[in-house]
Structure formats: structure tokens, C-alpha cells
Design a protein around this nucleic acid. Structure first.
Lengths: 310, 310
DNA sequence: TAAAAATACTCCATAGGTATTTTAT
DNA sequence: ATAAAATACCTATGGAGTATTTTTA
């Protein structure tokens, strides 16, 4: 019992004739005969009564016909769905974004893409860099934008843009208003950090390592699961932190927080488009990648720096 | 794209491995490879990403998998339905019956069969002999019981039982109470007849022909579409008729009608099981035929004759 | 007699196998 | 080093054809 035989069988039922069915599917009459015989021996019963002029289904044949029609229809739908999937940019697509990209980069990208391709339903999944990376590797997500490089060789990451982090303090902090602060002072200052999976934390750790230091050299007073919690911590005087300025743009402009540089430290960090190296991207994914590379043709800063209230 | 390949494809997706899928369907790993390659070239896109240890579906592959599962399930349902159809006596079955058998023979048969096979829904379709015969030939009905032989060579009819018709007159008719009446008198008497398709009418016509007569030799005052109308006609004094005594059993017993013989005329008639000679009977139909032949192992009279009120 | 299906046969495309190489962990 | 898929190559089943016979209207 295969689709081809079912198709032939249906044609015989519909045309009431072996030879006419043969014409319909470009097969000879004896070939039709043998296929019907095959089906009959497979099911162990007669399916078509050959009544001289007419070939008519038996009751068993009618039963099979009903089922066969449904199967063949489903087959056609499958072919159509597969063609559709490749031929058109439509459907549902989910991009992953870690905290900073998810909040400050992807919304614009997703909006712009949705505008150009109205038939696409886009959604944004937010997590920390580690979570998003893991999901692109496991296949749950096809694409992500994160603030950290993966150590997994299966990850393919391309640099999208650059950002320069800064030290953020509350407005009434003694350092508020200063241009910069030295590392030694910072090591003694209560410090708030993101959780381990965070790209921001990894960027900080990476820069400290370049200076021969580690996070353990600092006075970590809290580890927060998201950027908003860090910001609240700073505002409430719990400690200071190093953040992407885009995350505190409003607070800096309104004077509710204050940003400064760290002397001798290079606080640049990158954001990366991330996917599994070997997984085949869907047409939708390809279109989204093309769109992103159109918008960010070369890596550059997200926003102008030094957005402190003037 | 055929069912076998879809099955293999699904196994690969489920086992995440070509060789494991091979084990599952008793095929070698290279054979699996080639089937997947076939499918991929058929759809024009990659369906499975070979990620070293794991073989995982692409987005297109997942889409196909969803469809394939439904198709394969439908295939299983089809196989099950076909097996069920042959293996068990259950489902719906319609028997045709002409007027007399439909009213006096089949109800008992249908009742008895339904009792023995509780999973069968039986129904009885009533028409005159000609209609029922036509439907068994066209395929609308698999089986019928009628009171006439068909001239169509496609009809296969086996004699089920015998009945002896009688002349029926109203109680105040001058012939009421007589044992019999001669043909010459009957020819002058107002006569009520069934419609052309009726088996009763054909039986009468057949017997007249044997005597060198035809219906046109009688004074036909009415042609009625069913037996009840004929009975009403006789009761109202419109005329007399020749009927199966079973149809007027109650009227004879209560004295509301009176039956007598016709001298020199043999009014026996037969009832026949009727089906299309070449159509394959369904298992249900076969079971019903077996049951009927069990109940009526040899042709005989339906009921004892001469049921007039004593 | 004509039209349709069955039968008989021939052929070749391909599903399937084995042996081996390549690739990735 | 191992395990899995790809590749190469071979074989044989069976799907498809043509020619012919049988059947039935």
C-alpha cells in the first residue's frame, strides 16, 4: 500500500475504468490491473468488481476509497506546505535576545523586519546570553543576538556592533560628576553584578582578566538576575556597577544616575549574531539575517557615548 | 514521496540517527541515507541536519515530520478499518424488501439477525419488486427480497419461499362464503390491481398468461401503488383483487374480508432473495445471506393457507 | 463485433545490499 | 579511536512496457 497505488485506485474508482484510469495517470492498462491486483492481495479482498463495461468498487473498495481520498488530500497539503515554506517569507519566527540587545537592539530590528514582511509573525525571546546561546545550539531558537562569545565550537557568531560600558553611580555618590575613577578605588567600592550567565558580567570579567584581575578582587555585594534589578540596586545606594549606557540612557539624561570611565580599563564590549554553525537555517531565518546585515552593514557603536545629563 | 519513505523519515527524526532508524525498519544505514537524500531532492531542501552524533530535523524537516505523522496515522487507520471490515460482523447494513416480503418476511429476519449480531445496525428499505431489483443491480442495495423474477441477466435470484394467492372480496359481496369462483365470472368483475412494478401484479400476469389470458381481458377499475390501497379499495366495494393471504391475515380472521380460490388457476407465487450476480458481497451481506438460508433452509410456504374466519 | 480487462513476456529502474571511505567527537 | 554518515558499487525485485488472449455487452 503506497500513495502511488492509492492514487491509481482512486482514479479507477472515479473513472470506473482501468484503461481510462491509465490514461489519467499516463500508465498502461495492464499496469493498472497489476496495481489493483496488488492492493487486493494486500487487503485480502476484492476492491473493484469488473462488471463488463463498468469497473465499480465493492463495499470494501468504497471504504478504502474514502480513506484513500483523505490520505491523498493530506499528501497534497504536505507538498503545498513544503513548497510554501520555501517559496515565501511568511509564518512565525522567534529571535532570541539577551538583556541589552533584547531591550535596545532587537525591538527596532524586529519592528523594521515585520514592516517589510507583513506576513511574518515575529516574536522576541529574552534571556541572558548563556540561555540564548544554549537555545540556539539546542535548536529551540534559530537565531539570537547576545553580548557574549560562546566557548562551544558549534556556535557561529558574527559581530554586529560595539558598545562601551561605563561605571554607573547614584547621583549623590561622592564620585558623581567625576570624569573617571581609578581601579584601586573601585576595588574597595561595594559592587553589584549580574548573574553568571550574563554577557555584561562576562564582558566585565574579560576586561578585568586583561588587567590581571578577577571579579573576586572586588567587593561584590549583590548578584542580580537582570539589569533593572542592578539599576535599582545602584539607585538605592547598595553599590555601583558597570553597565551599557543604553540600559540607563534615561536615568543618565535625567540625572537620576551618573556615568564615568574607569581609568586604564577598556570597557568596550561587542554584541553578536549567534546561530548553530551546522544547522540549516530556514528561509525565514535567512531573510532575517540578510535584513540584520543590511541594517548593520559593519560593526559600530549602538549609540553615541557619554549620555550623562549635561 | 511515498509512505515508505515518510515512515523512514519519521523514524530518523524520532531516533535522531540514520543507523538506529535502519535497525527500526530493518534496513541498512546506506539505504536510509539514500531515502533521506531522495526526499531532500524531492522537496529541494535539507530536511535533516547531520550534527555529528545527532541527526536532527531542520525547520523544513520538522514541518514535514508533522505532516508525515498525520499521513502515517491515517494510513494505519485505513489498514485497521479494512481489517475490521472483513474480520467482524458489525456496521450498517440495508436490505431491500418489496411490499409483501418487506411487511411479512423481512421484519422477522432482520429482528433475528440483529439479535444474533448486536453490533450490526440493520435497516429495511421498502419499494416494489422492480425498484428493489433495480437497486440491487445498480449497487445501491446489496441484497433484496422480492416477489418477482428479473429479466436482467445480471440478477441472481434464489427462491426463498412459496405463497398461494387468493381472490379477495368484501364480506357482503355475492361471492363471499364460496369456496371458489370460475375465471369467466372473474373476467366480468371490477378488478383492482397493483402498479406495474409490483411482484404481485407480475405473478398474476404470469398465471394468466399460462391460461392464455392477459390483464387486459379483465375489468381493471383501479391501479393502486401499494397493498393497503388495494385492500381499502376492496373494502369500499370498488372491486375485487388477487392478493397474498398474509397481507390480509387479520381482515380474513375478523371477517372484514373474504378469500376464495379461482377455479382452474394456479395462484402460487414465489419470493426470491436477489442480488447482483457479479458484485462481491460484503462480509455483512454474506453473513445475512447465511442467516436467511439457515432460517429458510428449503423453499416452503410462508404461512398455512385458508385463513378465512371460521 | 468491439471494448475492456487479464495474461504472458520482456526490460530496466531502483530499492536494497555489502564494502569502504570520510567525518566528527 | 570510535561511531556514524557518505560514497561506491553490485544485485535482484518489481514496476512498467508491448503483444496477445479472454471475456462480456
Amino acid at each position: 500500500m503506497d500513495l502511488w497505488q492509492l492514487n491509481i485506485f482512486c482514479k479507477v474508482v472515479e473513472r470506473k475504468s482501468f484503461s481510462k484510469a491509465g490514461k489519467a495517470v499516463h500508465l498502461s492498462q495492464p499496469t493498472i490491473s497489476s496495481h489493483i491486483r496488488d492492493l487486493e492481495s494486500h487487503f485480502g479482498c476484492r476492491l473493484i468488481d469488473r462488471l463488463g463495461k463498468e469497473a465499480v468498487p465493492t463495499r470494501a473498495g468504497s471504504l478504502l476509497y474514502q480513506h484513500a481520498r483523505r490520505i491523498l488530500q493530506l499528501k497534497d497539503e504536505t507538498e503545498a506546505a513544503m513548497a510554501e515554506f520555501q517559496g515565501s517569507i511568511k509564518g512565525r519566527f522567534v529571535v532570541g535576545g539577551s538583556t541589552i540587545p533584547g531591550a535596545y537592539i532587537l525591538p527596532r530590528l524586529v519592528g523594521g523586519f515585520a514592516e517589510r514582511f507583513p506576513d511574518v509573525t515575529l516574536s522576541l525571546e529574552i534571556g541572558d546570553s548563556e540561555q540564548i546561546l544554549a537555545e540556539t545550539l539546542s535548536g529551540g531558537l534559530e537565531l539570537g543576538v547576545v553580548g557574549a562569545l560562546s566557548t562551544d565550537r558549534r556556535a557561529e557568531q558574527i559581530r554586529l556592533m560595539e558598545d562601551v560600558m561605563c561605571l554607573v553611580v547614584p547621583p549623590r555618590h561622592p564620585w558623581a560628576g567625576r570624569e573617571s575613577m581609578d581601579l584601586e578605588s573601585l576595588k574597595k567600592e561595594p559592587f553589584i553584578l549580574r548573574e553568571r550567565g550574563s554577557g555584561t558580567r562576562q564582558a566585565i570579567a574579560g576586561h578585568l582578566k586583561a588587567l590581571g584581575l578577577s571579579i573576586d578582587d572586588f567587593r561584590i555585594v549583590a548578584e542580580m538576575g537582570n539589569t533593572q534589578a542592578v539599576i535599582q540596586g545602584i539607585k538605592s545606594g547598595l553599590g555601583v556597577s558597570i553597565l551599557s549606557p543604553v540600559a540607563v540612557e534615561e536615568e543618565l539624561a535625567s540625572g537620576r544616575l551618573f556615568a564615568l570611565k574607569v581609568e586604564g580599563a577598556d570597557l568596550r564590549r561587542n554584541f553578536y549574531l549567534t546561530r548553530h554553525k551546522d544547522r540549516t537555517p530556514s528561509p525565514l531565518c535567512q531573510a532575517f539575517i540578510r535584513y540584520i546585515q543590511e541594517v548593520y552593514p559593519f560593526p559600530g557603536p549602538i549609540l553615541p557615548l557619554d549620555a550623562n545629563a549635561k
